[in-house]
């Protein structure tokens, strides 16, 4: 299981939890499991979600490999200047 940290405004769509556990080995599996377990997160996932994996930000990498001890933090997909 991987512990995934959500940002605060997603909490209401994940039964009030800030950290949720999912069975996943890649970022895509994280997103898929989250969308299955918490359908309320689906619109945000479709708008765009990035991931910080052990401190490194991955903007869209579906196949980034995740280990059970990895720190996984979701972030809104960012656009810049």
């Amino acid at each position: 299981m991987v512990a995934v940290t959500l940002w605060g405004s997603l909490r209401p769509f994940a039964d009030g939890q800030t950290v949720v556990e999912v069975e996943a080995r890649t970022f895509k599996e994280v997103l898929d499991r989250l969308a299955e377990a918490y359908p309320g997160l689906r619109p945000q996932i479709e708008r765009g979600v990035s991931m910080a994996l052990d401190g490194k930000i991955y903007r869209e990498a579906w196949f980034a490999e995740i280990r059970p001890e990895s720190e996984v933090v979701l972030m809104p997909y960012m656009t810049g200047g």
Binding site: T5, W7, A52, D54, G55, K56, I57, E71
Partner: peptide
């Protein structure tokens, strides 16, 4: 390095 950032991830 190692600080939990204000936006979540731990800094490298």
């Amino acid at each position: 390095e190692g600080t939990r950032s204000s936006y979540g991830p731990t800094f490298e």
